[in-house]
Amino acid sequence: MSEAVPALSPEQMRSLLQTMYRIRAFEEKVDELFMRGEVHGTTHLSIGEEATAAGALQALRPDDYITSTHRGHGHCISKGADLKLMMAELLGKETGYCRGRGGSMHIADVASGNLGANGVVGGGIPIATGVGLSIKMQGLDRVCLCFFGDGAANEGTFHESINLAAIWDLPVIFLCENNQYGMSMSVRKAMRCETIAQRAVAYGIPGERVDGNDVFAVYEAVARAAARARAGQGPTLIEAVTYRYKGHSKSDQNRYRTRDEIRAWQERDPIKRLTAYLREHSLMTQEEIEREEAAAYQAIEEAYQFALASPEPDPDSLLEGVYA
């Protein structure tokens, strides 16, 4: 079995940029809609973390599965979701991915293998393990990519599930998006170990830490893990180190971190780093990059207009969909 990772083509790199711009544009719009009270409930934005989602999904095939988190818009978009149906879901419309029943925290696109965001921290980790078991028992050539946060790595579900996936050699990639905080609690305070990746040692599987703001590094790590999983060699734990710029959710006043810290991370912005690379290697001109960015904002605006024009669920449909 070779773990060599195929190099990304220029076309794939441009597609990564498109995805990352779409995530950012989508979330900026959602942020704005919340401020204006057009969307209710709560939302968790992944602005600043786009490279992890985009890079990871670039390494998978369309028929692979993912489980996502409360901070899941980026995973959903990277898995190829229709922006219109996503936006409609956030506006609670019948045309949304979950018929307006789920909202931001439960967005799922089951047909495309996205098994859903999750309102429960660590809630998706055992489910991903079960998806791996199902893939293995059915003899399918697929993998399941499980996203979760640094905070989730302190839930029992993390430890129990990774151990299970390890002893059964399940085709699961456990991808921790370490954005330094679980709500207000920094990783430094929440765990004694240096890295989350090193916890892999405890379960006898490979663990790897990558720069989560380097889209190529994330792609390569996930591609290697996917190759192992497909070859029947079991799960991998990957820790992608990144940072969220926005508050945890709308109730956050950022009292637990400094502006300087946020600014320092903005210097390492994943989109800026990718565009710099594309320019330096003459893969895209500044003008082409700007066109890509504008197209993303345009696509989001269209998605928003679609959502606005979409119908509300019929109030009498309240009891639908509880049972199969």
Binding site: H40, G41, G92, K93, C98, G100, R101, G102, G103, H106, E312, P313, P315, S317, L318, L319, V322
Partner: peptide, 16 residues
Amino acid sequence: GAETPIPYNRTLERRA
């Protein structure tokens, strides 16, 4: 409460 998990949509949520 209605025999359903709580829906996200505002109108359905109130109805539940």
